[in-house]
Design a protein around this nucleic acid. Structure first.
Lengths: 279, 279
DNA sequence: CCAAAAGTGTTGGGTGTACACCCATGC
DNA sequence: GCATGGGTGTACACCCAACACTTTTGG
């Protein structure tokens, strides 16, 4: 390291940005907030904010998630998650069936994604942003909190197009592409999610606490944008030890023959992995 | 985002730390520098330094690598690498055989690893460090540069032990575990390298520009710490299109029957991946 | 009865593993 | 000749893709 002289180096602002993904009506969606002030006023952006002097990066991400979106997962986030054990925490918590939660949010997943520090990424000053990735089940519409003028779940496909969200429904006023370099951050987050569900059990983070094999399959299909064979998928996931734990109950909420309900098991890594079909 | 008032947030220092890995005499080694001043004076640490106001994070990592260690890879690092194309750059550059370099350093690989921001990770002030991972071929002993009092290649196994480098050779004065949280950063970097050579062609970044299949196999064996079947390994790597390109030459530098020489091909992803044996 | 979704059985092809075996050099 | 490492052939097991078929509900 060079000689230590803090005053010789101009200050950096450090923020966290959040790529919050969920699956809604068969499509992968990301949480977006509308910016209330310049720069990029009126444009959609990823939720995020400044890191406080006394908090860890992951704590800052969890706090921002709760502040700006009203999301208050009771066990996996926003509280006292031990750092660098988020994954194990999110997995193991679903194993205790004695939680007196009527409709509480099951274990969402939070992990660091990457850090973006281009000198010109924010026109106001030098900002280094540590992006985090959150995988959440399908939630009721988020209520705006903090200073975000509005919050919505936006399908990721239009946002990832090369020239902004051109797939806007008629009558919905679109505001151009995402602010700052957030389109790139979102793309990195989506790519991470797509590859991580191949070799880990993280797809269950998109599901409610109890779910069917078919619902889990629709998660894979939405995230990957492909169709999977229901029979082989069923054999695969039920045959991987520790991936799914049957609860004994059944449901017909998808129609057809009643389906077994499962919870996420303790396994976090999938051997062999789920194979993503060629695109 | 909350209302914007830069002065309301105390400044963060932003640094880059480097996990530089290579394979030397059948062992995975990391570059370590001895700290010349407090805190942790005399202890070994990862190379690193402050990000300058006008440079990108990846540029800062490349500059620090050159400054502190004397490493001057001519094509892949330290110069005008386009950000977020490092991998393609490192791969494609080996395809132009017309470089007039007598013994130049082939394409080392540089990528962002993770960011570490625990409020107490540096006792002096709040420092957020963006760690980068470098995979380099076996190089001549690095010459110290900058203010590092000494530099060495240290086998990673002793450094990763739970209680510091206890595997020191007799007579070599050891200085306890790595400074700051660098043991954890190194562990994350090693784990990233171990998993990435499974599904990418990055193991060639540890090899000289021309190498044999056996040399590549010894890279895998050193990084994973396992023994691989030479026959199946040979079939596997030569059968993956785009992974290896024969140069036509042969060598007997490993003894035995002359072996074909290869360069890294254009493929960056391996389908199917190299399978790491159960440990 | 029919549609829809959940599950089970079976089969063929591809791929990894283990290991026998031959090849070409240096000493 | 012999040791050393390079390279090929082959048999077996396993896994996955494809698809026929049965089960259990709602309308």
């Amino acid at each position: 390291m060079p000689p230590y002289d803090p005053s010789a180096y101009p200050p950096f602002a450090v923020t966290v940005d959040l790529v919050v993904l969920t699956v809604r009506s068969h499509a992968l969606c990301a949480l977006a907030v509308r910016r209330g002030e310049p720069p990029f006023q009126g444009r959609w952006a990823l939720p995020g904010g400044f890191v406080q002097p006394d908090e860890d990066l992951e704590q800052a991400a969890a706090r921002e998630l709760a502040e700006e979106t009203g999301l208050h997962p009771h066990g996996g986030l926003a509280d006292d998650v031990p750092p660098d054990r988020t994954q194990a925490q999110a997995q193991s918590q679903t194993k205790s069936p004695s939680q007196p939660s009527p409709a509480s949010v099951p274990g969402a997943h939070l992990e660091q994604l990457a850090t973006y520090g281009d000198p010109k990424r924010d026109p106001r000053m030098r900002v280094v942003s540590v992006a985090h990735l959150v995988l959440a089940p399908d939630l009721p519409a988020p209520r705006p909190g903090g200073d975000a003028s509005s919050v919505r779940w936006a399908p990721v496909e239009p946002l990832l197009g090369p020239d902004g969200p051109s797939g806007a429904a008629a009558g919905e006023p679109e505001q151009g592409p995402l602010a700052f370099d957030h389109a790139r951050i979102l793309a990195d987050g989506v790519e991470r999610a797509r590859s991580k569900i191949e070799y880990s059990s993280l797809a269950t983070a998109f599901c409610p606490r109890e779910f069917t094999v078919g619902e889990l399959r629709r998660v894979y299909e939405a995230v990957w944008g492909v169709a999977l064979d229901p029979r082989n998928f069923h054999r695969k996931v039920t045959g991987t030890p520790g991936f799914l734990v049957p609860t004994g109950g059944t449901t017909t909420r998808q129609g057809g023959r009643p389906a077994q309900l499962f919870r996420a098991g303790g396994a976090t890594l999938l051997n062999p992995p789920m194979l993503r079909p060629e695109v």
